[in-house]
Amino acid sequence: MKVHRPADARGQVRTDWLDSRHSFSFGHFLDRDWMGFGALRVLNEDRVAPGAGFPAHHHANMEILSYVLDGALAHKDDSGGAGIVRAGELQWMGAGHGIAHSEFNASADAPVHFLQIWIQPDRVNLPPGHAQQAFPGQDRRGRWVTLASPDGRDGSLAIRQQATLQGTWLGAGEQVEAALVADRRYWLQVARGAVDVDGQRLQAGDALGWVDEATTLVLRGVHPDPADILLFTLPR
């Protein structure tokens, strides 16, 4: 089964400092047809005004990834984790048995644009954790790079779930393939730009998901400015 989640079908929350688009139900946005996709529970695209952000709040038993597209995001939590996540960097926070954290735009002048991703863990009540890693876009140009994985392989961030996050950048004429197997779920998110997936044109914010599919996808870049594409491999 293949599903399509167009960018303009997502939920939206707008305030004087936040523009947030929700692929799945989150906060005040409820769509019972889109409560998540397997272990992938939240995928929000956030734009936060200069100097604004989310004050300290609590999470437990969730793997939280923040992927910055533009600008810089300041993180601080009560386990001692702190840092600034910049464009092209991925941050992992394992909420474990409980953690309080804040996220603010690190700039007083420019907005920050990032994806916030929640993945349900396969182990609960572990100690909280925090890490971040830079993944320069040019290193992903025309090839898949592993950004997060269960074992931290190939320099990726280790997460507490049998799930993998890969990323690629594709400009015009560049192509990659992705082999899908039937005993896993897959979610492909276009973070920026445009791409053809087996001939289907996707724009920024669009997504496709697959369940019980065994096939090989062909992804082709369509514009000189590269598309930034994320692929989640998830438990069935």
Rank of each mutant, 00 (worst) to 15 (best):
G81Q: 03
N44I: 06
R41N: 10
R86I: 03
L43R: 06
A56T: 14
D77C: 03
E63R: 13
V48F: 08
G51A: 03
Q91C: 03
R32P: 05
P55L: 04
H57P: 01
L73Q: 06
P50H: 00
V42D: 13
G36N: 07
M93C: 02
L90V: 12
D31T: 12
D77S: 04
H75M: 00
H75P: 11
I64K: 11
A52S: 12
D70W: 08
A87C: 10
L65V: 03
F54G: 03
A87G: 14
L90C: 08
V42T: 14
V48A: 10
R86N: 09
A39F: 00
D46W: 05
G88T: 02
A60S: 13
P50S: 05
N61E: 02
E89L: 03
F37C: 05
P55T: 01
E89N: 02
R41E: 08
S79R: 11
I84W: 12
W92T: 12
M93G: 03
P50Q: 07
R32S: 09
W92H: 14
D31V: 11
A56E: 15
D31H: 08
G80P: 08
D77M: 01
F29V: 14
D78T: 05
L43H: 08
D70I: 02
W34R: 15
A72P: 03
N44F: 00
G88P: 07
G27L: 07
A39R: 07
V48L: 14
H57M: 10
D78A: 09
W34P: 00
D70G: 12
I84T: 15
R47T: 13
M62P: 01
Q91W: 00
V48C: 11
A87I: 05
G38F: 05
R86V: 08
A82I: 04
A74T: 00
P50D: 10
Y67C: 09
G38M: 06
E63N: 11
L40T: 08
H57I: 05
A87H: 09
G51F: 07
E45F: 09
G71F: 04
D78P: 01
V42L: 13
A39H: 09
G36F: 06
G94P: 03
R86Y: 01
H58P: 14
D78E: 12
E45R: 12
G71E: 04
L65A: 12
G80S: 13
A87N: 10
F29R: 00
G88Q: 10
E89Q: 13
R47S: 12
Q91R: 02
D77Q: 03
Q91V: 01
D46T: 08
D78L: 11
M35W: 01
Q91D: 01
A49E: 10
F54R: 09
R47E: 07
G80Q: 14
S79F: 10
L40K: 05
G71M: 04
Q91H: 01
Y67A: 12
G94W: 07
H28S: 15
V42R: 11
F29H: 09
V68K: 10
K76R: 15
A56S: 15
